[in-house]
């Protein structure tokens, strides 16, 4: 049973034929489209390494079925920097040492982007910690991660303030 799906990935329209419907969004990204920035940690929704934005919302790509997402817009870590210029959250992770080995980092960053878009956490460290709890870091870089997210949130809010 082959299926064709169309997805917009980081702004590019992709028509993909799936040999069968078992393909998760994570496997489609990594194995078919060779977008290996999105990581597979647990493959069971428990670690957040596979976090991507689908239609602007952060989800675990390992528990999403590509076939079901026909027509969706997907944003992965590869789509964040524009013209070689890092996004605010990416720069903040570098400045605050928000990683060590880097395996969880794409998921952390996409999750942080999702959290800032949701707009519920503001500058409250507890809300940011709670909002980022779906992303585990085996290296224990959480302190830097939370600082990075808080700083990025502040900068994004500042830019919005200026624009308004």
């Amino acid at each position: 049973m082959s299926l064709s799906v169309t997805l917009t990935i980081n702004g590019d329209r992709k028509d993909v034929v799936l040999e069968d419907p078992r393909v998760t969004l994570l496997d489609l990204l990594r194995e078919r489209l060779h977008l290996t920035g999105t990581k597979k940690g647990c493959d069971r929704g428990q670690c957040g390494a596979c976090t991507v934005l689908v239609d602007g919302r952060r989800i675990n790509a390992c528990l999403a079925l590509a076939a079901s997402l026909d027509g969706a817009e997907v944003m992965t870590i590869e789509g964040l920097a524009v013209g070689g210029r890092l996004a605010t959250v990416q720069s903040a992770f570098i400045e605050h040492d928000g990683f060590q080995c880097g395996f969880c980092t794409p998921g952390q960053i996409m999750s942080a982007v999702g959290l800032i878009l949701e707009g519920d956490a503001g500058d409250d460290p507890d809300r940011v910690r709670e909002g980022m709890s779906g992303n585990l870091c085996r290296c224990g870089a959480h302190a830097g991660i939370i600082e990075a997210v808080l700083d990025a949130q502040k900068r994004v809010a500042g830019e919005e303030g200026k624009a308004a």
Partner: peptide
Amino acid sequence: GASAQLRNA
């Protein structure tokens, strides 16, 4: 319940 990612789905 769960995580922000899971609650979105």
